[in-house]
Design a protein around this nucleic acid. Structure first.
Lengths: 182, 182
DNA sequence: GGTGCCATGTAACGAGTTACATGATTGG
DNA sequence: CCAATCATGTAACTCGTTACATGGCACC
C-alpha cells in the first residue's frame, strides 16, 4: 500500500492531474521519493477510484487525445493524513552494485573499475542537476514558506544521497587502484 | 531477475548454505545490498534448482530439523559472472518519508518533527553498529586481500549511506525548528 | 517519411508481502 | 509453561516490469 500514498501525496501536494501527468512527474520531481511506470499508475488510479480515494473527470481537448483528470476525495485526504501520522521504517535496500562487489574478486578488476566510473558519472550528473535546481528555485533559504521548506528538504535529500554515492565511488577507486577521475 | 543474483552472490561469495541461513544473512551482512523474507528465498531457491543454477543436498542433524544445503553449479557461477559484467542502473527510489514531506505542511509540525527524531535514532544506531564492525573486522586498511577490500567497501557504503541520512535529518531539524538533538 | 510526444490502456509474468502451517529443542 | 530458535514450506494477494496495442499531431 505504498504507491497509493505516493499518488495521493502528489495529487494533494501539487494539483489534480491525469495518469499521464503523474507518470511524467514520477520521473522528475516526485522521482526523489518514488518511481513508477505509467502502466502501474493507471492500474492503481483505477483501483483507488473504486475505493473512493480519488475521482476522475474526462476533459476533451482540441487536437489532442482526451484527458482523465483525477482529484483526491475528502476520504482520500483523510486517508493520507492518517497515514502520515504513522511511523515509517527505512526503505529496504536493493542494490545490484553491492551484490556485485560481494563477489567482485571473482572477475577481472577492470570490469569493476569501468562500472564504478560509469555509475559515478550518472550520479554526478544527477547531482549537478539538483544543484542547478537548488540555485534556481531556492535562492533565499532564509525566506521560505512551510511548503517551500518541505520541497527544499526533499531536494536536499536528493543532493545528500547522490553526494554520498560519489564520495563512496572515490573511496572505492582509491582502494582498488582505479584511474584518477578527470 | 534480481533476487536470483543476490542469492548466487551470497552462495558464491560466502559458502553453500540452507535457505534458513540465507534468510538470516539477508538480515545482517548481506542486508547491505538486499533484504528478503524466508518465504521468498525458499521459493526462489526451488526455481533456481529447477533451472540448474544451484543444487541441493539434504543434511540430517541430531536433535534438529534437517537442512537442505544449496551450492552453486558451474552453470550458476557462469551466469553470475556474466551478469556482473553487465552495466547496472541505480536502484529506483521508494521512500515513504519523502512522500510525507511532499505534503508535510498539511499536518501539525510536531508530527513531522517526532518522526524525524525517531528515524534519526534508527539510522544513528545502525551507523554505530557499522563503525564497530569496521574497527573489529578491518583494523588495518593498508593490508587487505582483494576479497577483504570488497567486503570493506560494502561496509563503507553502509556507513556513507547512514551518515548521509543523519546529516539530512539534522538539516531538516534546523530548518523546521525542531528541538536540538541531545 | 521517421521520430517523438500526447494519451489511453490490456495481458502476462515475476518480485515481494502477509498469513497460515508444522514440529522439535533450548532457555528462562 | 512460554517464548525463542531451528528449519521447512504453501497459499493468496499486491506490487512492479515488460511487452503489446492504438491513434493522432508536430517537427525535422
Amino acid at each position: 500500500m505504498a504507491i497509493t500514498h505516493a499518488i495521493l501525496a502528489s495529487l494533494v501536494g501539487d494539483k489534480p492531474c491525469s495518469g499521464y501527468d503523474l507518470a511524467k512527474q514520477f520521473n522528475s520531481s516526485l522521482g526523489f521519493f518514488w518511481k513508477a511506470s505509467h502502466q502501474q499508475i493507471y492500474r492503481e488510479l483505477a483501483r483507488m477510484e473504486k475505493k473512493g480515494l480519488v475521482m476522475s473527470e474526462v476533459v476533451q481537448q482540441e487536437d489532442r487525445p482526451h484527458k482523465k483528470i483525477y482529484r483526491v476525495t475528502d476520504e482520500g485526504t483523510q486517508y493520507l493524513v492518517e497515514w502520515i501520522a504513522l511511523p515509517t521504517e527505512p526503505s529496504p535496500v536493493k542494490e545490484d552494485l553491492l551484490a556485485k562487489f560481494h563477489v567482485g574478486y571473482h572477475v577481472p578488476i577492470h570490469i569493476i573499475i569501468d562500472e564504478i566510473l560509469r555509475r559515478r558519472k550518472i550520479h554526478e550528473e544527477k547531482l549537478k542537476l539538483y544543484y542547478e535546481r537548488e540555485r534556481e528555485y531556492f535562492p533565499d533559504v532564509a525566506q521560505m514558506s512551510m511548503k517551500a521548506k518541505f520541497r527544499y528538504l526533499n531536494l536536499r535529500r536528493g543532493i545528500t544521497h547522490e553526494a554520498s554515492w560519489i564520495s563512496w565511488f572515490d573511496e572505492a577507486l582509491a582502494l582498488l587502484g582505479g584511474a584518477a577521475v578527470e
